[in-house]
Every structure is written in C-alpha cells, then in structure tokens.
C-alpha cells in the first residue's frame, strides 16, 4: 500500500516548482508501478506508449480500468455524459474514496477556512437514488457535504426551489458565514432565475462554490463575471468560486482563486499538450492534461481531457498560492468531419 503521509503533511498551496517536480517525479513513478502491477490493461498501455501515458478520459467509457479486485470496489462513479452515450465507470475503493474526501477538504479549506459551515446544496437530494452507482453530480454533492454541516437541499425532486427550506436556512444562519454548493448551470437555471422571478433576495453571507462547466451558460451568453454579479446580488454572497474538476479525478479539484485563476494544489498538476500532436510543452492554448496523486483503485492519475486551456503561470499568482494556475476555455473545438461519424455509414 502506498503511504500518502508525506503528501498530506504538506500545505495544499505552499509547494514551489522545484519541490513539486521532485515530489511528482517520485510519486508518478510509484503510482505508475502500482497501477502496472494491479491493472493489466494499464501495463499494456505503458509497455507501448511509455511509462507515463495520459489516459484519454473517454477511455473509461470503453474499457473497465481497475487496480483493485472487484470485491474491493466500494463505489462505482459514472460520468453524466451526453445522453444516449456510454458512461464512464470509475471504480473507487475505500482508501481512494477517503483520500479524495480528505484532499477536497484540504483544498477547499484554503478558501473558506477550516470550520465546517452550514451548507446549502443547490440541488435535489433525489440525486442519490442508487447508492452504489454514483453520478458525477452525486459525487460532487457527497464530497462537499462532508465539508459542511446542517445540510439543506435548495431544490425539490422536480428541481423547483424549495422556498420554505431556503428561507428557513437563510433566517437561521443570518449574519453567519455559510457555504453554498452546486453545479454552475443548475444554480443559474433552477436557483438564480427562480429566485429572481419570485423576486426573492436572500441575505446570506459566506461562500458559493460551483463547478461543472460553462458550456450551457456560454451558449446563453452568461460569463463568469455575470454569474458572480448576479448570484451576489440575489443571495448576498460575495465570495463566489468556480472550480474545474472531473469525476475521473474526484477530490483533487482546481479551485478558482480571488484573482479568477484556477489553481493546481499539492494533490494535482496541470499541463497543456499540443492538440495536434499531443506532445507536452505546448505554449498558449492547448489540450488540458491533469495529474492527480489520489487514485490507487483505478489508473486515472494522468488524464488527457477534451478541454482547451492555457497555463497562466506557476508560483506567481498574486493570491499567494503556489503551483500552476490556468484558465479553461471549454471543450476543444469539435471536428468538422468530412464524410461523417454519423450512424449512417455508406458508400
């Protein structure tokens, strides 16, 4: 079993570039050897592509990748994915799952403090229908639930605002810091717009943390700053943080700092690959490759996402946090395929 005490002994955002390189050099060797030993498909990939291959996130849709025995799988996470498509399956054992929760707590504490805050989840508890199968949504909510206390769900099973519950929460914790968590688009669509329509302004304090991507909001021309302003105006909360994360690397999320930059913590790293060669060391925009030290039950420590991003700097963010900071532009532009990948095939 790998011993993570050296990683968890570190402050989440206090490791400079040199130290991080050293730490990651050793850890990626260790993790690579671990997964090669326990996951035969991964060993085959390494034998061909070299010892630190980035796994495309989509691969988890097509292949079962596991580094633990099936009876040690405590929880299987599935990606929400586009409807009608295959879902990714991520296998978690108890250790990986616990490690993810612990890392998430460390990362988020750097932004909201160590105290557990009253938590308003901007979602419905109906997300947890099947306890064994965790969707990305369920995983996010579960992870953040551990950070708060007195959890209250803001939406009912029909995704309508439970106004009585929300107002009771606001009243009970008036004047105290609280934590709000949810998915970006759902917060906008089901919470913000509904509050605005009902002309309800909340008088909350504390933090709003949200993630899940901007695609749907970009489509309706809502920017990150629009979002922040709108939510602050409607809820009273002035600290609104976006995060970048994925079900394939739960826990080691990249939080947006006060400067609007996404940050790698000690638990994760980020690289940009040339989108046309998938070679590392690209400057400017490129394909985001994320590294997480956390997973031992599945070989997802180095992932190639399908998102486009850009590194903004390392160790130099004015917010004071060390590590790489970056920006996400959204999905890599889709292909205009000649002929096409349609279900119709002919010729």
């Amino acid at each position: 079993m790998l011993d993570y005490s050296d990683v968890f002994a570190l402050e989440p955002f206090a490791l400079g570039a040199q130290d991080k390189n050293r730490l990651y050099g050793a850890w990626l060797d260790r993790l690579g050897a671990h997964h090669r030993h326990f996951c035969a498909p991964y060993a085959r990939l390494c034998a061909t592509l070299g010892n630190r291959p980035a796994l495309p996130v989509r691969l988890f849709k097509y292949v079962d990748l596991r580094s633990v025995a099936s009876h040690d799988v405590a929880r299987t996470m599935t990606s929400s994915g586009t409807s009608g498509q295959q879902v990714s399956r991520i296998y978690l054992d108890k250790d990986t799952s616990a490690r993810q929760s612990k890392a998430l707590t460390r990362i988020v504490s750097s932004f909201i403090g160590k105290k557990r805050l009253p938590l308003l989840i901007i979602d419905s508890s109906a997300v947890f229908k099947d306890r064994a199968m965790f969707s990305a949504r369920g995983a996010g909510i579960r992870g953040f639930s551990l950070l708060g206390r007195d959890t209250c769900y803001a939406l009912d099973a029909d995704m309508k605002v439970d106004m009585a519950a929300v107002l009771a929460f606001a009243k009970k914790y008036r004047g105290q810091p609280t934590l709000l968590f949810g998915f970006t688009f759902m917060i906008w669509q089901h919470f913000y717009l509904a509050l605005r329509q009902a002309d309800v302004k909340l008088d909350l304090q504390g933090f709003l943390i949200h993630g899940g991507g901007w695609k749907k909001l970009t489509n309706i021309a809502v920017s990150n700053s629009d979002f922040k302003q709108a939510l602050s105006a409607q809820t009273g909360i002035t600290h609104v943080f976006d995060y970048y994360g994925m079900v394939e690397q739960t826990g080691s999320i990249f939080m947006e700092c006060e400067q609007g930059h996404l940050h790698a913590s000690v638990f994760s790293d980020v690289d940009i690959l040339d989108p046309l060669t998938l070679e590392p060391g690209a400057t400017g925009r490129g394909c985001i490759c994320t590294t997480s030290l956390l997973p031992t039950s599945y070989p997802g420590h180095i992932l190639l996402t399908e998102d486009e991003g850009e590194i903004l700097g390392q160790d130099t963010c004015p917010c004071g946090r060390l590590g790489k900071y970056f920006k996400v532009y959204g999905r890599m532009p889709g292909a205009e395929i000649r002929g096409c990948s349609d279900t119709y095939v002919a010729g």
Binding site: L59, V63, T277, L278
Partner: peptide, 15 residues
C-alpha cells in the same frame, strides 16, 4: 488535422 480527430485516434490507439 483537427484536435477532435487527434483525440479520437488517441482513444482508438489506447483501446
């Protein structure tokens, strides 16, 4: 060459 195509091919090589 388009990024999405490169990704498709990389997924295929892994599979």
């Amino acid at each position: 060459l388009q990024p999405q195509m490169v990704m498709d091919k990389y997924v295929q090589v892994c599979s």
